[in-house]
Write a protein that binds this DNA or RNA. Sequence first.
DNA 1: ACCATATTTCGTTCAGGAACGAAGTATGAA
DNA 2: TTCATACTTCGTTCCTGAACGAAATATGGT
Lengths: 224, 224
Amino acid sequence: MQNKLAEISTVIGDKTRINMLCLLMDGRAYTATELSIAVDIAPSTASVHLNKLVEQKLIECLKQGKYRYFRLASPAVAQLLESLMNLTSSLQSIPSTTPDELKYCRTCYDHMAGKIAVDLLSFMKQEAWITGENEYSLTPIGSESLTQMGLNIKEIVTTKSKKRFAYACLDWSERKEHLSGLLGSQLLKFILDKKWCTRHPHSRELIVTPSGKKSLSRYFNITI
Amino acid sequence: MQNKLAEISTVIGDKTRINMLCLLMDGRAYTATELSIAVDIAPSTASVHLNKLVEQKLIECLKQGKYRYFRLASPAVAQLLESLMNLTSSLQSIPSTTPDELKYCRTCYDHMAGKIAVDLLSFMKQEAWITGENEYSLTPIGSESLTQMGLNIKEIVTTKSKKRFAYACLDWSERKEHLSGLLGSQLLKFILDKKWCTRHPHSRELIVTPSGKKSLSRYFNITI
DNA sequence: ACCATATTTCGTTCAGGAACGAAGTATGAA
DNA sequence: TTCATACTTCGTTCCTGAACGAAATATGGT
């Protein structure tokens, strides 16, 4: 019991690992190499540290191709780090992402990405429109809400497609999850149809229209 | 800035020191020797550990004659330890497993604890019956009020005792300060004598009697 | 298929620091 | 005063674990 506690605290109690955890405090996921560069150690050393942190469930690892993204495992970990920072009274403000347009709203393959998409997913989770960890299912609440919004959910749900229905995709700029899968792509299609956003002619940027601002705010409580 | 954080976390990240901190989680002050025995190391080693903890302001030291009493430095430290315990999901995490009654009103060694005791201390502070940060002194107002209530303050003040007169004890469940020391123990004695509370036969719980309710409300503005 | 990049595993080196006991200091008691 | 107890300081030993680079593995791109 206290043994477990001692284990955890020794894992936390390392200069390098604490620095890593601090970097992860912004809620984003970083690759092993990025972290190793940021804290100035060899990748091999970083790998060892990251494994220890994963072992103690302080962070978790998301494989994506040859990359491994690491992020804090739970809000409880963030809270722990925060109380640590409270002690030093050096609660550095979490670096706010300076949203250059592309970071803000764009496409990622066939679905939306950027801050808006991250906010959108977090709204849908919070309002219990969807459930699940990495693979999502639509709840009756979500189904109804989206239908009322104008999406033909019935059609989407009955679509025969090899595509996964809905899952979490890591955003490359925010490094936070956003909605991917059939639901994500249909949602983008819908938003473009409704002209809440329009495509930028030469990039993957999406431009939110005035009516889009209103609707996004109304349906998803997203302010721009 | 992160340097400071790393320092603190390395100090926390030691099996022996964490064990000591856990012992101190009950809010009580222990001597160096007691702690060294409890965690099974030589007194000299304990001394080094305790100094490190003091240096980082995780605990504080109160000299009293040849004894040194150590206790947690602040509620913030208790909170840190609690969030650490949260991670282990060990249900030794206090709040959920503790019956409400025990949280509400009980003894902590020789004085009262629980929500009532916390309220009581905060009332005494607010009404300027006592002054001080962690070590309290009785003010003339406090002295008079308590005397009027029926406590023999003169006798208590002139008692020769190694015990500290009055100090803040960290509450185990509330994580807030309550009154400990000679004054605290005498107050409990008084309250039991007056039958404002009675002891539960097999636990540290205190049961507030009907007349206790009236008196606590009248003298300390505490509603139950 | 080939190479480039991301990450892990392994073996080695090395510094830091945890632990002890002995000797020194401080305080209380007889 | 003298002794006992509480605690600290110092010097030494010893072990853990942080770090590295080289080689292995995994994946993507061309």
